[in-house]
Design a protein around this nucleic acid. Structure first.
Length: 954
DNA sequence: TACATCACG
DNA sequence: GACGTACGTGATGTAC
């Protein structure tokens, strides 16, 4: 805080009074610093404000120290700039701003205005261009300019009358500083940058040339064109070749870095005149944000009404110089929350425009869609609800018809309620939904994105998006469900109107299109309201719960990936299914006849109850056990046991059941799911169902398509590639056992994986004390059973049952296993006690998996929970690994210029549809993504196959 | 709607 | 000494 006031520094004796002085603040730089320097802070209503706070503080501090005749904060406009027109990659790999920052952009513009400072931005131009434009114009009128920024791209502007001010070091940057940084005078900076490039902005430059070399060349040849003209005379062969080969790239680079000082100026210079902030406006703004300490510091808190301070969650102590975060305050004391309703019904575009403006201003928008079905690829859009703040929500009906029973039976035709057309709503919403400065919040975003993205619904695209279901799942998997109603009750203490309440149930149920608008609004708008409030309640918990990275990097990114997969679907040969079905039908009929003869009477083979009575009551076969309901158990293990004793009836029932299962579920069930438009089946992946972090798949479930039996393989063959394509399957090999070797750090298992040896043979050798080359099939089979059993928390009893040996023998094997691999025993115990003490276990990548029942008094229930606790990190860790591969896959394929589509995920397998000519390259790309996705103590391995159908691809 | 069964990893 | 006995899913048919 020395006296490096720009007016004194720039004006060489001149004062602010005598010479015009324009201060241009680089808004993005301020925002970025403020956001990253401060811990998360939220207003009492949950809106994040740490960047707003930091920005306001920095701007306020600046104004107290520096005086200029003119001042403006210059912002980047959200849209693309003219640079991407001639070089699409420019700044293309910039990550989206973090979701907590998104709603703050609008508030920061408000803050600027509240401080009485002009805010300047222009579509199609970067802040740097506007800064260049204003600087040039101002200098031409004889004024001085100070640009508050440390961005090196702005150094090209330094000249007599124009200087930069480093906002962190409070140090002016003039010609000597530029010379030090670039090795050339400011007027040559762009030529140096053209050669050196800039990886963060994707400015290519000339490969192999950095700033030092570039400066040397420019000093020698004057400028870029001079250098390129003389390039063939350069002595160093590498440098010469690089320059000759990349001359055009260098010219493009120069255009990219050269600021457009002739850009249009959105406000006249007079509009940038410095003026004192209007106290009521400033205090109003600060009070709205809850910035009490700042109000106080500025002496603006004289007669303020009591209000609550923002909730601050300082995580690590960090302060900007002269900038104090607000004191930590307790959770907002339940100031009476906004009521849930009444909500507004929107019938015309003018009304909607008001809501769009509100969302634009707040930067936050919760959205929910109402449809006439749960199948996102087929359901029709019935209405859209929006929420912009707690309690402020509306419903836009689009396809509501007359409610039932309206209209006169005799004459009057039933009348649909007033509503705007879908086109009107879609066009009003489209810019808002795409606006990168407005965060869209949804619950189960994948569904709404699929519905709104369909062409017949206007092909709406939403970005950026947060998903409250996934936020909840990231922290609380296994703890409870993640449906909106359940979360509302749990976190907001509010039971929303249920769907059944508005549509009725059973025979009396009416389609949502016929629900009267007042009821529909009460239901639909409330869902958007609840979604917004859930976001406010849950989103701030991600960081302290250490689940933020998982949510941001995995779950949030999975939405788009799964959406593409569901949309793609997989082709199923319906004619082949029909042939299989006929064959099964015939064979079942034959079997049924035999079974009835063996039973001595006809009965329903599909009825376990009737079968049990025949087997155990009538025929008195041994080994019958009754289940919960008192019925005889007749599952495959029981029947298999009887069959092994030579009984024919159970054998044939086993065969019949296999065919019945395949026929009903996979032949008929699947055929019914083929979409006639593309002859493909489109599953719905559920992202927040499992207790371990796995996906699940429904309608149809494409994660349990048969493969293990010969008959099953026939069904899998009906999953085919389009003509000219193949299916490519990539499986993680032994992923859970690799995680076991990693987590328990087992030297022998690590060694086996490292060397690519058969892991079960290694285990057999270790626990049975056999030399590696003397492990026979039976020993390997036993070792395999125990290896998998371990991951499932199996007991000696269970192992005995599986291996058909006595519990004593099984105990001996388990003892040998744990004495060979003591790290595994330790890890099992550690997981049980972690679950007991905390209620959860962690996956290797930081997902918290809650274990239900771990504290139960009933031994059986607790035993179940302990086994779940042992299994969860392995199953969950594997799920994490494949999800990470999936979120990386689309970009990797694109970068390799491959057009393969990812179709399915089956827990440790990814299935792709690949153009025939790209198979080898795709296999390599997929392998490298899958194997490179995590660094464990053992290597990851992906096994890849391909073929005309899914069976062949294995 | 509950249960049993069985398809997958 | 008894208890129960390998984790995680979803779809189907029967019986109530």
């Amino acid at each position: 805080m020395d006296g490096a006031a720009p007016n004194a520094a720039a004006g060489s004796g001149a004062t602010a009074e005598t010479q015009p002085h324009l201060i241009l603040i680089d808004g993005s730089g301020y925002i970025f610093r403020a956001f990253h320097a401060l811990p998360p802070m939220t207003r009492p209503d949950g809106v994040p404000v740490n960047a707003v706070f930091g920005f306001s503080n920095m701007l306020g501090q600046f104004l107290t120290k520096h005086v200029g005749s003119h001042i403006a904060v210059v912002f980047d406009s959200s849209r693309k700039t003219f640079r991407s027109d001639f070089y699409p990659d420019y700044k293309a790999h910039r990550p989206e701003p973090p979701p907590e920052l998104v709603p703050q952009f609008a508030l920061i513009r408000e803050a600027t205005a509240a401080f009485g400072v002009a805010g300047v931005e222009l579509d199609g131009f970067e802040a740097d261009d506007l800064i260049a434009g204003y600087a040039k114009a101002f200098v031409e009128t004889g004024g001085q300019v100070t640009v508050v920024s440390s961005d090196k791209d702005l150094m090209q502007l330094v000249r007599p009358g124009v200087q930069l001010l480093d906002p962190i070091k409070q140090k002016p940057i003039r010609e000597p500083e530029v010379l030090e940084k670039f090795g050339v005078t400011p007027d040559k900076v762009v030529d140096v940058q053209a050669l050196a490039g800039d990886s963060t902005d994707n400015v290519p430059g000339v490969p192999g040339i950095g700033i030092k070399t570039a400066a040397q060349l420019i000093l020698e040849y004057g400028d870029l064109e001079g250098l390129l003209a003389a390039a063939d005379k350069i002595k160093q062969p590498k440098r010469r070749e690089a320059l000759l080969a990349n001359a055009e790239l260098a010219r493009i680079s120069r255009r990219l870095v050269l600021l457009d000082e002739n850009c249009p100026l959105p406000s006249p210079i007079d509009a940038l005149l410095a003026r004192a902030p209007e106290p009521t406006r400033l205090s109003g703004f600060l009070r709205e944000q809850g910035f009490r300490s700042m109000l106080h510091r500025m002496g603006l808190d004289g007669d303020t009404a009591p209000e609550s301070a923002p909730v601050s969650r300082p995580r690590q102590a960090f302060q900007l110089p002269g900038l104090q975060p607000e004191a930590a305050a307790p959770e907002p004391v339940s100031t009476e929350a906004a009521p849930f309703g009444p909500y507004e019904t929107i019938a015309d575009p003018a009304q909607l425009a008001g809501w769009v403006a509100k969302a634009q201003a707040s930067g936050l928008l919760a959205i929910d869609t109402e449809t006439d079905g749960l199948d996102a690829l087929n359901a029709n859009l019935v209405g859209i609800s929006l929420a912009v703040a707690p309690g402020r929500a509306c419903y836009i009906p689009l396809r509501h018809g007359p409610p039932p029973g309206t209209g006169d039976m005799l004459q009057e035709a039933p009348v649909a309620p007033p509503q705007m057309t879908q086109d009107q709503a879609v066009e009003a919403l489209r810019p808002l939904l795409a606006d990168p400065s407005v965060l869209k919040i949804l619950h189960n975003a994948k569904f709404d994105l699929e519905v709104l993205g369909r062409a017949e619904h206007g092909a709406l695209q939403l970005s950026p998006v947060d998903d409250t279901m996934l936020i909840s799942y990231s922290m609380d998997a296994g703890r409870h469900g993640h449906g909106m109603d359940e979360l509302s009750l749990r976190h907001l203490g509010h039971r929303p109107v249920s769907y059944d309440e508005v549509t009725g149930t059973g025979r009396a149920r009416i389609p949502f299109t016929q629900v009267a608008l007042d009821k529909a609004t009460a239901y639909a708008a409330e869902d958007a309201d609840v979604t917004l409030r859930l976001w406010q309640a849950l989103r701030p918990k991600l960081l302290p719960q250490k689940s933020l990275a998982l949510y941001e990097q995995v779950e949030r990114r999975m939405v788009a990936v799964l959406r593409e997969m569901e949309l793609a679907g997989i082709k199923v040969d319906g004619a082949e299914l029909a042939r299989i079905g006929e064959d099964f039908t015939q064979r079942m009929a034959t079997l049924e006849k035999q079974i009835h003869e063996l039973a001595g009477k006809p009965f329903n083979v599909g009825s376990p109850k009737q079968l049990g009575e025949i087997l155990f009551d009538e025929q008195k076969l041994p080994g019958g056990k009754r289940g919960k309901a008192g019925a005889w158990g007749t599952d495959a293990a029981v029947l298999e046991d009887l069959a092994a004793r030579g009984h024919e009836l159970p054998r044939q029932v086993i065969n019949w059941r296999q065919l019945a299962k395949l026929k009903s579920t996979y032949v008929e069930g699947l055929a019914a799911q083929i979409d006639p438009r593309d002859r493909r089946v489109h599953t719905d992946f559920s992202m927040a169902i499992t207790s371990t972090g796995r996906l699940s798949s429904t309608e149809p479930n494409l994660q349990n398509i048969p493969i293990r039996s010969e008959e099953g393989v026939r069904i899998r063959r009906a999953f085919v590639a389009e003509p000219g394509h193949v299916l490519l399957a990539a499986d993680y090999s032994q992923i859970e056992l690799r995680l076991l070797a990693h987590l328990a750090d087992v030297p022998s298992l690590r060694d086996a994986f490292e060397k690519g040896e058969d892991i079960h043979s290694r285990t057999a050798s270790d626990i049975f004390g056999l030399p590696r080359d003397q492990v026979d099939k039976e020993a390997r089979r036993r070792a395999k059973t125990i290896n998998f059993g371990i991951i499932y928390g199996m007991s000696a009893f269970g192992l005995a049952a599986r291996l058909g040996i006595s519990p004593g023998e099984a105990r001996g094997i388990i003892d040998a296993y744990f004495s060979q691999y003591p790290g595994i025993l330790e890890e099992m115990e550690r997981l049980k006690s972690e679950a007991r003490e905390t209620g959860y276990v962690m996956t290797p990548f930081g997902r918290r998996l809650w274990i239900d029942g771990i504290q139960a008094k009933e031994q059986a229930r607790r035993g179940n929970a302990e086994r779940a606790a042992i299994n969860a990190p392995f199953q969950g860790g594997a799920a994490e690994i494949i999800k990470r591969a999936m979120v990386r896959m689309p970009a990797a394929l694109k970068a390799a210029n491959l057009s393969a589509r990812m179709l399915l995920q089956v827990h440790d397998e990814l299935l792709f549809e690949v153009p025939q000519g790209e198979v080898t390259a795709t296999a390599e790309c997929v392998r490298s993504v899958m194997e490179g996705v995590a660094e464990l103590r053992v290597p990851l391995k992906a096994e890849i196959g391909f073929g005309a159908n899914w069976a062949e691809a294995h």
